Amino acid sequence: MIFQKTYLRILSMLQVLLILVCFTSLVGCGAQKTKSLSQYWATDSEAAQSLEAYVKKVTNKKDNENFIPEEDRIAVFDMDGTLTCETYYTYYDTMMFINYCLEDHPERVSDELKAAAQEIKPGYTAGEELARNFAKAYAGMTIQELYDYAVEFGQKETDSFNNMRYIDGFYLPMVEVVKFLYDNGFTIYVVSGTERTTTRAIIDNSPIKDYVSPSHVIGTEFEVKVKGYEDVSSNMDYKYADGDELVITGGFIQKNLNANKTIWIEREIGQRPVLAFGNSGSDTSMMNYVIDERNPYPSEAYMVVADDSEREWGKQDWTEKSAEYREQGYVPISMKNDFLKIYPDTVTRADEQYIESEDAAAARIAIPKEKLISFVKRQSYSI
């Protein structure tokens, strides 16, 4: 009898404990993770504090005025200069084009494309003509081959930073932001001027690969057709079948550069995001679209200012830029003051940013001078 009573008492205590555990678990599941941005952000960062307060507000179910359902928590990020390094020698798709033409596969491209690659120098403008040259360089490759080359190129070390591979150029504080938002129920989209396949390759091999679905990468596109039908004027004459390979034709479809970003957010996401992150004038239309008064939810936009000339190659004036961005309704982020650490400890800024490789110099010499001069004269407006 005593044993039975003791057994029942223990059983009762276990049941109570189990109920408490279950209750705690249920409460925990309903609460959002709103830990602070502390690992790579300054403790007095206005931008970090603003984002933390915003997330806490919109994930609080008891805040009827500001709560945003999880399915509507969408954040859009520009890529180059916002998530990743955008210095001349670490700018991914431009340097990939230069390496492809002058070092890795010069036998596959025309003298004109070599001339275009050779003439790109710091301060160049990445216009539409340059993007068309990218498309021409990769003509004949399948999508998978371009993806694989983008990953292969990413293993090369940059000249702007010591010990940094191109694919490692993600800013640690921005990686922390992406994870912070993901942990709080946000869906992350990357809206990039870089070609979509290349962007996916970069993200798939980056610190944010677990937080961004491949289907959530929006970018420009090279014209693609089924292999064997490259010269057919329209893809409507046949249908893709299992086993068909998609081939890059050398044409270029401009989709979302500059103001067009908002169009493709509307088409591919189908609703206004509630958060936007950018770093330049080409991102303002996307950011204005997010913070537009017609957005049914509270929204914010953050602009990264490249003002760190010690750890980065940033030359922007913080006072001028931050005032300009605040006036437009954005929260400015200072790379110099808000970012505690930009890259891993093993990465340091090089003494010199522009270094011409021996292979590139040899390729320049190999191009017939008359072709180089002629091509540069015709194309100088675009690079």
Score class of each variant (00 low, 15 high):
1 M>D: 08
4 Q>V: 11
4 Q>C: 15
8 L>A: 15
12 S>T: 04
13 M>V: 07
17 L>H: 11
19 I>K: 06
28 G>M: 11
32 Q>W: 01
36 S>C: 13
36 S>G: 07
36 S>H: 14
39 Q>M: 15
42 A>E: 14
44 D>T: 13
47 A>P: 07
51 L>Q: 01
55 V>K: 02
60 N>T: 03
63 D>T: 03
65 E>L: 11
69 P>M: 11
69 P>G: 08
74 I>Q: 06
76 V>F: 12
76 V>R: 06
87 T>H: 04
88 Y>L: 14
111 D>P: 00
112 E>Q: 09
128 E>Q: 10
134 F>T: 05
139 A>Q: 14
153 F>G: 06
165 R>D: 00
173 P>L: 02
173 P>M: 01
175 V>A: 11
177 V>I: 07
180 F>D: 08
183 D>F: 12
191 V>L: 09
197 T>V: 08
199 T>R: 01
201 A>T: 02
205 N>I: 08
210 D>K: 13
216 H>C: 05
219 G>W: 02
219 G>F: 03
221 E>F: 05
222 F>K: 00
225 K>I: 10
229 Y>I: 04
237 D>P: 05
237 D>L: 13
243 G>S: 03
245 E>T: 10
248 I>M: 13
251 G>D: 10
252 F>G: 15
260 N>L: 14
261 K>F: 13
269 I>T: 01
269 I>K: 00
273 P>R: 06
276 A>K: 04
277 F>C: 07
280 S>M: 02
283 D>S: 07
284 T>Y: 09
294 R>W: 15
302 Y>H: 02
303 M>N: 09
304 V>R: 00
316 Q>P: 01
319 T>V: 10
325 Y>N: 08
326 R>D: 12
328 Q>L: 15
333 I>H: 05
340 L>G: 11
350 A>N: 11
360 A>W: 12
372 L>M: 13
378 R>T: 09
